[in-house]
Amino acid sequence: MKTIVYTDIAVRQLGALPDEAQERVTEGIERYAVSGHGDVKALSGRSGYRLRIGSYRVIFDEDQATILAIYIGKRETTTYRRN
């Protein structure tokens, strides 16, 4: 299992989501950290990855032992331009 680290911004964004969405996103990130399974794609034009959890996206970077969650939010046209 990889260690999950959230940036300060990601913590605030996760806290601003509705309770049900917070639960789904947290479970999705944990599932990916444990098993490596999830709808993950490399970002084009920049480093990092995105994890799709329903209509929510987690923009993250990872190494052998750590997942760094950078952005958590609903999929919008600005989701990938923000960070």
Rank of each mutant, 00 (worst) to 15 (best):
M1Q: 08
M1D: 13
I4S: 01
V5G: 02
Y6W: 14
T7K: 01
D8L: 09
D8A: 08
D8Q: 06
I9H: 13
A10V: 00
V11D: 09
R12M: 14
L14M: 07
L14G: 08
G15L: 13
G15P: 08
A16I: 02
L17A: 04
L17E: 03
D19Y: 12
E20F: 12
Q22A: 14
Q22I: 10
Q22E: 10
E23I: 05
E23D: 15
R24D: 15
R24F: 15
V25H: 03
V25Q: 00
E27R: 02
G28P: 09
I29C: 11
E30W: 10
R31S: 08
R31H: 14
R31P: 04
A33W: 09
A33F: 14
A33P: 09
S35E: 09
G36K: 02
D39R: 02
V40A: 05
K41A: 15
A42P: 15
A42E: 09
L43E: 06
L43G: 05
G45T: 03
G45R: 03
R46Q: 15
S47D: 13
S47E: 12
S47F: 13
Y49K: 02
Y49E: 07
I53L: 07
S55W: 04
S55R: 11
V58E: 00
V58D: 02
V58P: 00
F60I: 04
D61L: 09
E62V: 08
D63H: 03
Q64D: 14
Q64A: 15
A65Q: 14
A65P: 11
A65M: 02
T66K: 01
L68Y: 14
A69V: 02
I70K: 02
Y71V: 12
I72C: 06
R75H: 04
E76D: 15
E76V: 05
T77V: 14
T78P: 00
Y80S: 03
Y80H: 11
Y80D: 15
R81V: 10
R82S: 13
